[in-house]
Design a protein around this nucleic acid. Sequence first.
DNA 1: TTTATATTTTGTCTAGGACAAAATGGTTTG
DNA 2: CAAACCATTTTGTCCTAGACAAAATATAAA
Lengths: 317, 317
Amino acid sequence: MKIVPGQTHLVNISSVERDTGLSKDTLRMWERRYGFPNPSRDSKCERVYPAEQLEKLRVIRRLMDSGFRPGKVVAESLEALTARIQALPAGAQRSGVEHAMADEALRLLKAHQLAELRQLLSHALMRQGLQRFVLEVVAPLNELVGNAWIEGRIEIFEEHLYSEQIQHLLRHTIGSMSEARQGPRVLLTTLPGEQHKLGLLMAEAFLSVEGAHCISLGVQTPAWDIVQAARAHHADIVALSCSQAVPAHLVCDGLADLRRQLDVNIAMWAGGSLWQHARKSVPGINTLVSLADIPAALEKWRMRAQVQPRTIARNQP
Amino acid sequence: MKIVPGQTHLVNISSVERDTGLSKDTLRMWERRYGFPNPSRDSKCERVYPAEQLEKLRVIRRLMDSGFRPGKVVAESLEALTARIQALPAGAQRSGVEHAMADEALRLLKAHQLAELRQLLSHALMRQGLQRFVLEVVAPLNELVGNAWIEGRIEIFEEHLYSEQIQHLLRHTIGSMSEARQGPRVLLTTLPGEQHKLGLLMAEAFLSVEGAHCISLGVQTPAWDIVQAARAHHADIVALSCSQAVPAHLVCDGLADLRRQLDVNIAMWAGGSLWQHARKSVPGINTLVSLADIPAALEKWRMRAQVQPRTIARNQP
DNA sequence: TTTATATTTTGTCTAGGACAAAATGGTTTG
DNA sequence: CAAACCATTTTGTCCTAGACAAAATATAAA
């Protein structure tokens, strides 16, 4: 790894894989099919990529995340690509006072004023209470930040930072609440592949306020382990958070699988942004389109639990 | 993802790569050279690995982390391997009261008594203070849990749960501290591929107590984004946490890469369990073998900062 | 005991082929 | 007009088998 001064820095295929998230196989395939990237070779005849190509790959990556397919964009010039980025449709626009707050938060994030951002959020939390805060500030802000990243208006590291701030705040708040003892026991997690932590945390906040006893496994728990965990902790409800990052049909398959393996008297709830768009529903699974649906769903569960106490169901062979 | 009842669960090569940290190339090579792993093929003639082989690969991985070479151990029977594991110089045989505490915590985790576990940890935290708690309870407990998982004594979901509890506790505690204003600005994150959050969080706890101003990006930040973040937030130190999940040479490459791109007057620190085993060091990077080294490193940094204030260095062309 | 050199071990890279899953486009039906 | 179906194209991942350098180990010399 020597640097030749005055010459653009060259990196090997592993580094490119690490920095772009495109697999070695994919990189080689693009080269074969589209003629880009177009690395030179070192003494061992191995690919070495100049920094410009790595940069262009990053731009392509971003366009693909907003729906473009490789065949369209991989062969294009860098100018054409940046033009495309700028022509991306500006995100969804919603009115309301709280939306203004979310805008302000985004501004602070971009200005790198973390302390101020934290204070703004913390203040809003105090004023509105946890549930309204999550619903009216965090949820719209998530969307805003996600869109801003796709459009290239903020950097990945800024999204990371945002996520960290919210996590700190929500975790701190949830941790301050006394633990529920009487509510239903809710096991919270996501399926493998689903990395969005915030959805999970928002749900946990909502449920905790409503008096549910939450057991969070964090993200990406294999189905079999969810089953074991539900059994070990006598869960009444298994709640899964699903963003749009994973293809809908995969999620539906995974959910159906899980439903099949879980005890029939354990309810399954699925929430998250996926269900706002997908119209599909999986039999035996309660899909919650919004966090605001949680209180009603809990109420319904409690009604049913009174009529049909779980001890009866437990005695089934 | 269909599970045929009565038949051991089969996974493809990608899953094995993800779960063991061994690259696809390496897996194929071992099969060619040592006859293990020995996957069967599906209808597409692609490798499918039974759960037992995955389990054995994990044990092998553990042995390699303690210095064994593949040629020695890959072809051995599972019994021979577990014998070797048990013959290992019993890792953290640190004596003392706190080790007993970690044992008790593991017992509670396995007994699914979360509330009690939380209380035990919380109590220890109060008694010992954050730094000693992290050093004497959390760190050994991490190792204990990691080993227990490799040896199959606890389930994945239990490890998830453990991680969640610790995160809640540490985040809550860090959040309660007033923010440092005068200390060095430390940017905390991990390289792509490194998913271990706990190491990062432990470091943040330690640094915060020492009066550093921590900016955490969470895990898996691409090198280029670390550079941007360091610039945007005027970081004095970039601190990376490295577990043994990612091959050491990859980590070293990534670190060297990052060092080259970062401003010379930004210090780089690398900590985590990786450095307890690897003897390698990367030029220009301060490797911290233990969390306990942090205070001294900070002191050293402060000394140097006094002699050579950063404004001077900043003015260099 | 240390230092230099030979030898083994080991992981990563390469090429080009194959193929199924996903996305798209066009057609028919409610 | 929208939904459901089928055909076609696009795209990523997996395959084999060979090559080779970097790392680790063994051997020889100082």
